[in-house]
């Protein structure tokens, strides 16, 4: 059967000789969770952002949900991908001028042309699942970071995506707020959502991840199951990285 995501020889260079992505190939199957790890500047953000066209690449090809894109960065195909792929950012990126409910309803109504009432009902259902239904009429600035990130997840889910991308979703949160977001993500994984998650949360990766991809200087150093990666990483560089984040 076809992979949900498959990348073949993706490359992107910033300046000549310096690669942001260096010949990356990977596959993600339906219902699986891929955790991407790596030191800062290793290209993990760049990689995940190519999957919905926020970042263009120079060579190779990408197949997302059966839609093929290549270095030509075809706008129409990218928009088709975006309609079916959700993304959650490190800084939440909620729209500050819209209420929580309006944030969630905007895309279903404008992009998918769903009815306002139906979209609002669905949004309220999602907010209830996230445990923040009482905040529906507040504005983003009135919420804590953890609450804002849960709204952002609800906003992504409102489009009923077939794949969810998470770009360091807990890095901007206060430590005591991290778990309320991770819990939501655990639930999503249980429900069978296909996810790609860039994160430093070892516990989450061990528990939820089906595979861990370790990236350094734009190269895939290794791809292993969490069990292997965290107890018995094959590469020296992976072990060094794991030591560093444990020492934190």
């Amino acid at each position: 059967m076809e992979h949900i995501v498959s990348a073949k020889n993706l490359s992107k260079s910033y300046t000549k000789g310096l690669y942001a992505l260096d010949n990356i190939s990977l596959q993600v199957d339906e219902g699986k969770v891929l955790v991407v790890m790596g030191p800062s500047g290793s290209g993990k953000s760049t990689l995940i952002r190519t999957f919905n066209g926020l970042e263009a690449f120079d060579a190779g090809e990408l197949n997302i949900l059966g839609i093929r894109i290549d270095a030509s960065h075809d706008e129409r195909r990218i928009r088709q991908i975006r309609k079916r792929v959700g993304m959650v950012f490190q800084q939440f990126n909620l729209f500050p001028h819209l209420s929580i409910l309006e944030n969630i309803v905007l895309a279903p109504v404008q992009v998918q042309k769903r009815l306002q009432t139906e979209a609002e009902e669905h949004a309220m259902y999602l907010l209830a699942q996230m445990g923040i239904a009482t905040h529906a009429n507040k504005y983003p600035s009135q919420l804590s970071g953890g609450e804002q990130q849960r709204v952002a997840i609800a906003r992504a889910l409102a489009l009923k995506p077939e794949l969810l991308l998470f770009d360091e979703p807990t890095s901007a949160l206060d430590p005591e707020r991290v778990n309320e977001v991770l819990d939501v993500m655990r639930n999503l994984a249980k429900q069978g959502m296909t996810m790609i998650v860039v994160t430093h949360e070892v516990g989450f990766a061990k528990e939820v991840g089906d595979q861990v991809l370790f990236l350094d200087s734009g190269k895939v150093i290794e791809t292993s199951t969490p069990n292997v990666f965290f107890s018995n990483a094959r590469h020296e560089r992976s072990r060094k990285f794991l030591n560093q984040i444990e020492n934190k």
């Binding site: 926020l54 975006r82 950012f89 800084q91 990126n93 729209f95 895309a107 998918q112």
Partner: peptide, 13 residues
């Protein structure tokens, strides 16, 4: 710029 990215991610044209 992240506002534009977030909106584009949601499929808005």
């Amino acid at each position: 710029n992240t506002q534009i990215e977030a909106a584009a991610t949601l499929g808005l044209n």
